[in-house]
Amino acid sequence: MQISEEKVGSVLVISVSGRVEMFTSPRLKETILSHINKGEYHLLFDLSELDYISSPGLGVLLYTAKTLQDKKGKMILCSLKAHIHEVFKICGFEKVLPIYKTREEALKVFK
């Protein structure tokens, strides 16, 4: 798993690539929480290079969404591969997390 961050206006874009599972998800959670603790409440997750995610990783994203909701922040996902999107659908994430096809579309929502 690789994580990279980029600030676009008021939005922190977090790109996660590779595999997010039991061994890698704690590092993802740690990274996200360090940003939230610094006051970053507008997070866009670019998942265009995410190949695999299992329940610990899904749990981190759900936890992040709940944390940001408590802080009146916003969290959006974008650019999911079809097989990853399917996993999110199965878990009912579409009902609670906005998912956009492209980064550009997603960034407009924050404006």
Binding site: S55, Y63, A65, K66, I90, G92, V96
Partner: peptide, 17 residues
């Protein structure tokens, strides 16, 4: 998996998957 975000539990997705 159909409730609002604030009511969702973070765990329990594995067997469902």
């Amino acid at each position: 998996i159909t409730t609002p975000l604030q009511d969702r539990q973070v765990g329990g997705l594995g067997i469902h998957l």
